[in-house]
């Protein structure tokens, strides 16, 4: 990339942001290790579920991150659509957060299914919460596919924003489905939105809380990386575009300079004698040729 035009790259990456991302990554890793250690080896088994309760330290935090991710994507989309705050950075943030959200939605379904088999006796059931979550997964996959459709960045961002708003409609439905309909899935354990009570205490509560912090940190790290990737791709496209424009400009300048010497544009014999009979390269077919001049001209 020796011919990169730096004028085409108005933005640079902050060294501080890079360092912050690395620190968040390390903190996420350490807190995840602590969560797994506490969850598997320190916390006691549950009175009713026994050891299966250990999946509690993974499944709800993943579901929490799923909601956070789509919430961030929704707010970013709104900020992009609002004319006063319209900026492609919000579109990139919405895309990055949605992709991470899709990963965590998939993991919510996977870990829930693994937990559901021994507790409910089935890998899958068409329960309102499970069904709406699966629908959410598919809708955001569609949103990510929409983001990949070709187009200039502004058009693509607007198109994606509409798709993002439509997909987000399902998020509150997923959250409230356990309250609105009869569900096999239990209501929120940490803080019941109806009674305001918490049903978990002691080391189990602290481990679950640590799980929430750990997975949230991991989410922030993933989004920071994904955002950086999106920005790098954008800059790379701009560099390529700028190089292509410069190349066309050089070609146009060369052609102009070449065209100044009119004689050099046409073969010498043509310049002196005009087109020969049957020479249809410049004037069409033999029959159509109407250009006079020279011995063979009509």
């Amino acid at each position: 990339m020796s011919e990169v035009n730096f004028a085409a790259i108005p933005q640079v990456f902050s060294k501080r942001a890079e360092t912050a991302t690395k620190i968040i990554g390390v903190l996420a890793l350490l807190s995840l290790i602590a969560t797994v250690w506490l969850g598997l080896f320190v916390t006691p088994p549950d009175q009713f579920m026994g050891n299966l309760v250990r999946l509690l330290y993974v499944h709800p935090p993943i579901a929490w991150v799923m909601f956070v991710a789509y919430g961030v994507a929704f707010l970013s989309t709104l900020l992009y659509l609002w004319p006063r705050t319209r900026d492609l950075r919000f579109d990139r943030l919405a895309g990055a957060s949605s992709e991470v959200g899709v990963i965590f939605t998939g993991l919510t379904l996977l870990s829930g299914s693994i937990w559901g088999r021994p507790t409910w006796g089935t890998w899958w059931t068409w329960d309102p919460l499970l069904t709406t979550t699966a629908l959410l997964f598919v809708m955001y996959l569609g949103y990510l596919a929409l983001r990949r459709l070709p187009g200039d960045p502004e058009t693509r961002a607007k198109r994606s924003a509409i798709g993002g708003l439509v997909a987000f409609i399902d998020v509150p439905i997923v959250y409230f489905s356990v309250l609105w309909w009869k569900s096999l899935h239990q209501a929120p354990t940490v803080l019941d939105p109806v009674t305001g009570k918490t049903y978990i205490h002691g080391s189990m509560a602290y481990t679950l809380l640590l799980g929430f912090v750990a997975f949230t940190l991991l989410y922030v790290y993933f989004v920071a990386k994904r955002y950086r990737l999106e920005r790098l791709k954008y800059l790379y496209d701009r560099v390529l575009l700028d190089e292509a424009i410069q190349e066309r400009k050089r070609e146009a300048a060369d052609f102009k300079a070449y065209g100044a010497d009119k004689k050099s544009l046409v073969p010498t014999a043509f310049a002196e004698n005009g087109p020969a009979l049957g020479d249809a390269r410049f004037f069409g077919t033999e029959e159509e040729s109407v250009v006079g001049g020279g011995e063979a001209g009509r």
């Binding site: 797994v36 050891n51 999946l55 993974v58 993943i62 996977l110 937990w115 088999r117 021994p118």
Partner: peptide, 14 residues
């Protein structure tokens, strides 16, 4: 039970 290991391994693998 194998479900706990399966849950943790699958989540962290992904």
């Amino acid at each position: 039970s194998g479900y706990i290991e399966a849950g943790y391994i699958s989540v962290f693998s992904v």
